[in-house]
Amino acid sequence: MSPADDEWSVLMRAALGGDARAYARFLADVTPVLRAVVRARSRDLAWDQQEDIVQEVLLALHRKRHTWQPDLPIRPWLYAVARHKTVDAFRARGSAVHLQIDDFENVLAADEPADGLAARDVAFLIGRLDRRSAEIVRSVGIDEEPALAVGERLGLTEGAVRVVLHRAIKRMAAIAKGPRA
């Protein structure tokens, strides 16, 4: 067992015990690794689409974190989930992912792109969403209300609110980008 393996296992064990700070550190620590895995498989995807997949993997790790057995090393579990979700993500995108962005690849990799949404008219984008997603984006995404409270108001679980939010923001990003993709 490598030292890093040990450290991640320790962090996740604390996280499952309710230590939010350990959990945030665990997620932050594994993200670069996930990013490298996704990037290696998807060189022809735009940076933000790769990042979408990274976020999908993070969400899956989050939603299934209770299936890791704390007495086993975490890496095999982590990689199994990451592989499964990455393959899923590519399958879901199908052939639509073949973008002609090779020319921009170096530029995109070089500087971290701006949030995209921030520069646009957010209200306009929210207006294009269905009512429930719009409500969630407004209260969780902008007003920073806790997802749990919003979920209670809308009759959704905390996790479901996050999923809706995540998807809505992706949809808004797609709208902001226009019909290019």
Partner: peptide
């Protein structure tokens, strides 16, 4: 959403009961 924001939000969730 930026990934770091996503992480911040996910970290606030209460952990689910273990799969038994």
């Amino acid at each position: 959403m930026k990934t770091q924001d996503l992480i911040r939000r996910l970290a606030q969730d209460t952990p689910p009961p273990p799969f038994s």
